[in-house]
Amino acid sequence: MKKIFLFLAISIILVNCKRGDEFVPSKAQGTVYYQDTIIKNSKNLAAEADIFISPNTEADPFITKFKADKEAKFTIDFEPKRENLCLVGEWKDSRGILFKGNIKLLSNGTELMLSPRYPRGKIKVIVTDSNKQPVNGVEVYLFVNKTLAGSVAAGEAKGHIKKETTNENGIAFFYDLAPNTYYVAGTREKQVFDVVTTTTTVDFNDYTTINHHPVTLVTPALASIKLSITVKDAAMKPMIGSEVLVFANATQAETARSAKKPTGVLESQLTDATGNVFFRTLADNTDYFVIARDSLYDVSTQKLRAAFSIITPLKTTSTATITIP
């Protein structure tokens, strides 16, 4: 039946596009964009998106198909009287999520915007601080068991079925979920956000942005920074992933040079992408001893070697830069 309809539709266009013996086309030109309004990202070019001319908004059936170019632009000739036709765009992102949208076929400049069609049940988690501002970088875990969800408070997420990290808008989004009761918990810098119960339903046909279940996790206020450490190499470039350890005395700090698990470690962290670590749980007005360690490539031996900073005495509320030569 679809083949018959397609043949008739093409025949009608070919007949209508002649005036006497002369072809009289019009042009529709435009650009295809995609935007995920659920996670609030900006619009982007949908390079090489598939575009259909169809009598309906789903392109089922469609009359003809073509592609946008690498700059997401397209040009199509059409017969001006065919005002009842639609341009339907489709594009998939790196996750395989289909983005789809449609507009009426017009001859002036056109912007074709595509929106995501996430499959099955969806849960949108919004993480804010105590001032209701979005929090980036929170690890959000999804569970089907409330007891397991409570494991996040112990510093480990046992038995979670999915994990997402909040973006700059404080949003973590889960999709392709079966109907069930779910439990959501989040953590960042050893802070734990309350376990929240939520449910989800499945609707294969509704792709609107309101067809998800919003959950808000509010972070407790961050404790003030007691020690701020930056680790750099001999060329004064930030070192990423170096281990920084805090001790109560220099003797214990010295054990970090010889033991994988040194004695008396009060706190330890790995440096971030800028070579920084922040310790928030240390006591006020207290002296500590800090050492950083890492494995560096030795050009002369062509092997990795253990490298250490000097042991640095610091008092809380200090900021320091230490080097690993």
Rank of each mutant, 00 (worst) to 15 (best):
L114D: 10
L114R: 07
S115T: 11
S115F: 13
S115Q: 11
P116N: 10
R117F: 00
R120G: 04
R120N: 15
R120Y: 10
G121K: 12
K122E: 05
K122Q: 13
K124P: 03
K124L: 09
K124T: 07
V125Q: 00
V125C: 02
V125Y: 03
I126N: 13
I126W: 10
V127T: 09
D129P: 11
D129S: 05
D129A: 03
S130D: 06
S130M: 10
S130V: 14
K132E: 05
Q133L: 10
Q133G: 02
V135L: 08
G137R: 06
V138N: 01
V138C: 01
V138S: 01
F143N: 04
F143T: 05
V144C: 09
V144H: 05
K146Q: 14
T147R: 12
L148M: 11
L148G: 04
L148D: 11
A149R: 07
G150W: 01
S151V: 09
S151P: 10
V152I: 12
V152D: 07
A153K: 11
A153Y: 04
A153F: 06
A154I: 00
G155F: 07
A157E: 03
A157K: 03
K158M: 12
G159C: 05
G159I: 02
I161M: 12
I161V: 14
K162H: 08
K162A: 15
K162Y: 13
T165R: 12
T166E: 08
N167R: 06
N167W: 06
E168W: 04
G170S: 05
I171P: 09
A172H: 02
A172T: 01
F173I: 00
F173E: 03
F174P: 06
F174W: 06
F174C: 03
Y175V: 00
Y175I: 01
L177W: 08
P179N: 07
Y183D: 02
V184I: 15
V184T: 05
A185Y: 03
T187F: 02
R188D: 14
E189C: 05
Q191R: 14
V192A: 12
F193M: 15
F193W: 09
V196H: 04
V196Q: 09
T199I: 10
T199S: 13
T200V: 14
T200G: 15
T200D: 12
V202G: 09
D203M: 01
N205F: 00
D206M: 02
D206K: 13
D206A: 03
Y207D: 15
Y207R: 13
T208R: 13
T208I: 00
T209S: 09
T209V: 01
I210G: 03
I210F: 03
I210M: 01
